[in-house]
């Protein structure tokens, strides 16, 4: 059952329309990734769904409540981690947890969160002295202190080093195992592919693709088959194969791009020509490629929009 339902969500800032009718469904216990380039409306969408901004049109239901009419009950069950929100530099970790626990009816014990987020040793350190990763971990801990059923996490690993990022991902996986439904705003494809059950790609205030990371990657991105170059095979032979889109020579390797069936066709062609494919590599289509091809159309669509006005 969908815990979050959004349909036809629109929002403008002055004369600039930021959201052009967003439709989203997030099922209970699911992690939905919202991807998109800067300025695509990700944060605005999350803020409208979370009730921090008034929407212009459309309907939003979060656990059966409308954020526009029922904000207080929503705050109690929705934990939000926002971009660029800090704590006072001189506030200590344990003090922050203590303060935020006073806001909720049934808060999680601070000790449990400190341990869970690896902050026990830093409980008495001021926020300003924590590393970026520790600050983000505290920020997530604060978002979860009220035992929310739903958590919105906006670019929580931006600016972190890869090790710290991995660490945060592990925490989020544990949370999902607890049954927390999450809406994750990110611009890291790797993060989305690793964590999200489904992703929605936002571009120019519209959702241009949604589905499981694999499905999006396969639908849009292509298979890539490559092997050490061999004079016995003519690139043109490969180019004529069904499903092959391109054949290139790159640093001593033949690189064939094509649809899902293209690797089979290439291997069959090599075998029938008596060529052994050495250092053969077939790479799965990546979400990265899909994302880039989906969002690359951005300038065109904005121009079209401009000419319509």
């Amino acid at each position: 059952m969908a815990l979050i339902t959004v349909s036809g969500l629109t929002k403008s800032y002055g004369s600039r329309q930021v959201l052009h009718g967003i439709d989203l469904n997030v099922d209970e216990g699911e992690i939905l990734g919202v991807l998109g380039p800067n300025g695509s409306g990700k944060t605005t969408a999350v803020e409208c769904i979370g009730g921090l901004r008034d929407r212009d049109g459309g309907s939003v239901s979060v656990a059966g409540m409308d954020p526009a009419t029922d904000p207080l009950a929503l705050r109690e069950m929705l934990g939000m981690q926002l971009q660029q929100c800090r704590l006072p530099n001189k506030m200590r970790v344990a003090e922050a947890l203590d303060l935020y626990s006073a806001f909720y009816a049934d808060p999680r014990p601070a000790g449990e969160l400190l341990e869970r987020f690896g902050l026990s040793a830093h409980a008495h350190q001021p926020f300003g002295k924590l590393s970026g990763g520790q600050q983000q971990r505290l920020s997530i801990a604060l978002a979860l202190i009220g035992r929310p059923r739903i958590a919105f996490l906006d670019e929580l690993t931006t600016g972190l080093d890869p090790a710290a990022r991995r660490e945060i991902w592990e925490y989020l996986r544990l949370l999902r195992d607890d049954g927390v439904t999450m809406l994750l705003v990110t611009h890291f494809m790797e993060e989305a592919a690793y964590l999200c059950d489904r992703v929605a790609i936002l571009e120019g205030g519209r959702i241009v693709a949604s589905g499981t990371p694999d499905a999006i990657a396969t639908a849009t991105g292509g298979q890539e088959t490559s092997f050490a170059a061999d004079d016995a095979i003519d690139p043109d032979t490969l180019r004529r194969l069904p499903g092959v889109a391109s054949v290139d020579l790159d640093r001593g390797r033949v690189v064939v791009r094509g649809d899902a069936d293209s690797p089979q066709a290439v291997l069959a062609a090599l075998a029938s020509n008596g060529v052994t494919a050495r250092q053969l590599r077939v790479t799965a289509p990546s979400l990265d490629d899909a994302y880039l091809s989906l969002t690359a159309s951005a300038p065109t669509s904005t121009t079209q929009e401009g000419s319509l006005r």
Partner: peptide, 9 residues
């Protein structure tokens, strides 16, 4: 800090 507090009850 004020923005963050808006997300709490």
């Amino acid at each position: 800090i004020l923005r963050r507090l808006r997300t709490t009850p």
